[in-house]
Design a protein around this nucleic acid. Structure first.
Length: 473
DNA sequence: TTGGCCTTGGG
DNA sequence: CCAAGGCCA
């Protein structure tokens, strides 16, 4: 590898051009830069909604690269083999990427790095997906934080690098390697019925994300402290889908939030804390990889969860037919839009794991199937927080009451009206759209009778608390 | 070692 | 008012 050899920029969850240290390093290295996305096992096995959303992001990124004389090379297969093949085809001397922190990605990247280094290549991972590297945040005794608030206190005064602008030019190779056609990957295949309905709810790509960040920190963040709790309001940043795919960097969000804080806008600190929750989730995944698929507190293995995904209660939960309006509205919002309001996520998670006594992994898997903002670390941490099995989790006896929650956070039933059609004289278009988004085989119609609760708020709470009292730990 | 404390609640 | 175990300094 000498001066002027090409650098492969292996892109994954960093689908942006600004504030991208790996891209910056690739350009600084001097030779041509070849951006590549590989549809490997990890991408291939994404849930239906995040896989489809990934395709939208890749389409946008490719267009932006082409506009500046570059390209996005698409390849399918094992990451190591594919990168080796590309090195052979292009004579590249280096492969750069943005570091990932979830266990599956870490395992893959370790293998890739070892193989490429063995080939004598400059194989290097870079920062950018997080604001703080997991190994740099330690408690007084040298461990990692298991409780959020001390974690927050440990990082909030740290400096976060200012976001870098996008490069004005990305040096192109004389000859581009061949690329797959994005359409041939059929990333929308599992979304066939719902995709057209879901599409208008997506804000795709770096420009859209930065525009939204500007609107949010400029006009909405001041009301964030209260508006963020109201599922019928557009009171949150809504940037989770962009952060999940790296269409925007957390550093850029941090600095926009800090500016709002310095301008004295009241909700700014609360929002900065939310950005740090994302960090916390990734740090936990990095320090305790089991968080993504096992009870983080192992004594919860003894808890008598229902683990049957085909249990009628679970099916009703997934289909938004529990008979509990707030729960059903939320599940339908997710199916139609690919997102779900934060407060609603807590309520459906509480209902599944407590009233229905079903394992959090069932919910985790369904969210992975349905959420366009799906993120391995946040999803795992959120579910274990709700279930009570995770770090700094809500105590198990703290059972959300979905009726009380409606009174508090949706008193005019705007959220319920938006998503529930059955039994309404004039159902809203959004509520009706649910029945066009769902698979026909579910056999549901807007003319159905709205179900009675499969498990009442009162009985479910009592049963959950009883199961917790009887637990063997 | 000890004591203050812990995202989002219920009744 | 309740609930609690464990984290962190």
């Amino acid at each position: 590898m000498g001066e002027g050899t090409a650098t492969l920029l292996w892109m994954r969850r960093d689908l942006r051009l600004s504030d991208h240290p790996a891209l910056g390093a690739a350009i600084a290295r001097g030779g041509p830069v070849i951006p590549v996305f590989i549809l490997d096992d990890l991408a291939e096995t994404l849930g239906a909604a995040p896989k489809w959303r990934l395709g939208l992001s890749l389409e946008d990124l490719a267009r932006r690269l082409e506009a500046m004389g570059s390209r996005l090379i698409l390849r399918r297969g094992d990451a190591t083999q594919t990168l080796r093949a590309l090195v052979a085809e292009t004579g590249a001397g280096a492969v750069y990427w943005s570091r990932a922190y979830d266990p599956d990605s870490v395992a893959r990247d370790k293998a890739v790095k070892a193989a490429l280094k063995q080939d004598g290549l400059d194989a290097r991972s870079h920062e950018g997906h997080l604001m703080f590297e997991p190994w740099t945040v330690e408690t007084g005794t040298g461990g990692f934080y298991r409780v959020y608030t001390p974690f927050w206190r440990a990082v909030k005064e740290r400096g976060v690098p200012e976001p870098e602008p996008a490069p004005s030019h990305i040096p192109a190779p004389k000859d581009w390697p061949l690329s797959d056609a994005l359409e041939d990957w059929r990333l929308a295949a599992a979304m066939d019925r719902g995709a057209a309905i879901c599409r208008p709810y997506q804000r795709v790509g770096e420009d859209a994300a930065q525009g939204r960040l500007g609107w949010f920190t400029g006009h909405a963040i001041g009301a964030y402290d209260t508006a963020r709790d109201l599922p019928a309001e557009d009171g949150t940043s809504g940037l989770s889908e962009n952060l999940a795919l790296g269409e925007i960097s957390p550093r850029r969000c941090w600095h926009a939030g800090m500016r709002a804080l310095h301008e004295g806008k009241p909700g700014a600190e609360t929002w900065l804390k939310e950005l740090v929750w994302r960090e916390f989730a990734y740090h936990l995944a990095w320090h305790t990889p089991r968080i993504v698929n096992r009870n983080w507190r192992e004594d919860w293995d003894a808890f008598p969860w229902n683990e049957d995904e085909d249990h009628p209660h679970v099916i009703a939960w997934k289909q938004g037919r529990t008979g509990i309006p707030f729960v059903d509205a939320a599940m339908r919002e997710m199916y139609v839009t690919g997102r779900m309001h934060n407060r609603a996520r807590m309520i459906v998670a509480s209902y599944l794991t407590k009233h229905l006594l079903s394992h959090w992994r069932i919910g985790q898997k369904w969210f992975e199937e349905c959420l366009t903002d799906w993120d391995p670390a946040s999803n795992a941490m959120g579910w274990q927080w709700s279930a009570g099995s995770g770090p700094d989790a809500t105590p198990y006896f703290r059972v959300f009451n979905p009726e009380t929650q409606v009174q508090k956070f949706d008193p005019k039933s705007r959220y319920l009206d938006r998503w529930i059609a059955e039994g309404r004289r004039n159902p809203t278009d959004t509520a009706l759209s649910y029945f066009d988004a769902i698979p026909r085989k579910w056999g549901l119609s807007a003319d159905d009778i709205y179900p009675e609760p499969i498990v009442s708020v009162k009985d479910g709470r009592a049963k959950a608390l009883a199961a917790y009292e009887r637990r063997g730990f």
